[in-house]
Design a protein around this nucleic acid. Structure first.
Lengths: 152, 152
DNA sequence: GTAGCTGAGTTCGAAAATCGAACGCAAGGA
DNA sequence: TCCTTGCGTTCGATTTTCGAACTCAGCTAC
């Protein structure tokens, strides 16, 4: 099975994992959540090759994570890449990565940007909870039950 | 900047994004959370090439996400790959991916495996919350403030 | 002891992905 | 008309990945 065919695997975790697990895609989404919207800015801040950047943007457009939005730049029409609702909904994924990174990959008190709740100024944290009782869950609290096939 | 050098970028989101954004790594973690622990089983269930599997396992070992644990198999000692505490802490990342996948990438009522809270049987969901007031947050509720440099 | 089996890699040539530098192009402006 | 800018495309060189074969250690059977 080539890597690309995971895009059609029957698993609600596997498909996103394959999509976002392509090289550059997570870093690209990070940059977008930080506010970058233009081809040129992605290319210079990430130092990604232009052809790969084109490809990754197109994949995310096709998946409906991004959309191209026209805007006026000194009288002429240009386009920028913006998150769709589907794309904005990836926020918990990025925040979960950041929460993990702060706990396990931060060398010291480094913090290149700070996030806080607009309303109350509090910090931001990803967590997993039970939809029923509301308890916060870890891997140990969750039972996996296979439904269709063993590779889930 | 080659892709690999993101491993040392000064960003608590960028470093994990670069680490888990390597091809196969997210799918490998998914497989581990589903219970796979042995080289041979990874190789056959994921259809990844053996050399790349070796490389990805070694990276995760080196990062302290996985550990090699000896066990007895018909009298002889073998090793299996298991999550460390750091690795188990990636659970919210995987759950955030799955929560997103169920909402946005599920073709129908497909569900290849089911997750539920051991104690009460409820469903499992990732979310982002304010550490202060406890409110559930979306990207729009969060303010980003640069600290060191603009590329975050 | 020696032949076979199995899990866990390693090796290596072919194919695919990525890089980086140059090129193309459309829409203004000078 | 020529210049600039943003946004790609193209293409040869390099790096990754693939896939099949090979190695090796520890057992089992004979």
């Amino acid at each position: 099975m080539p890597y690309a065919s995971f895009a059609s695997m029957p698993c609600a975790l596997g498909r996103p994992a394959a999509l976002l697990g392509e090289r550059w895609t997570l870093l690209l989404l990070r940059q977008i959540f930080l506010g970058t919207r233009r081809f040129e800015d992605f290319q210079t801040t990430m130092a990604i090759s232009r052809s790969v950047l084109t490809d990754r943007l197109n994949v995310l457009l096709q998946e409906g994570v991004l959309k191209r939005v026209p805007y006026q730049d000194e009288g002429r029409t240009r386009h920028e890449y913006r998150l769709t609702e589907k794309g904005r909904d990836l926020y918990p994924v990025l925040m979960a990565l950041r929460t993990w990174g702060e706990k396990w990959m931060a060398p010291e008190e480094e913090e290149s940007f700070h996030l806080h709740h607009r309303d109350c100024g509090g910090g931001v944290r990803a967590k997993v909870e039970c939809t029923d009782c509301g308890a916060e869950l870890t891997a140990r609290d969750v039972q996996v039950t296979a439904r269709v096939n063993s590779d889930g």
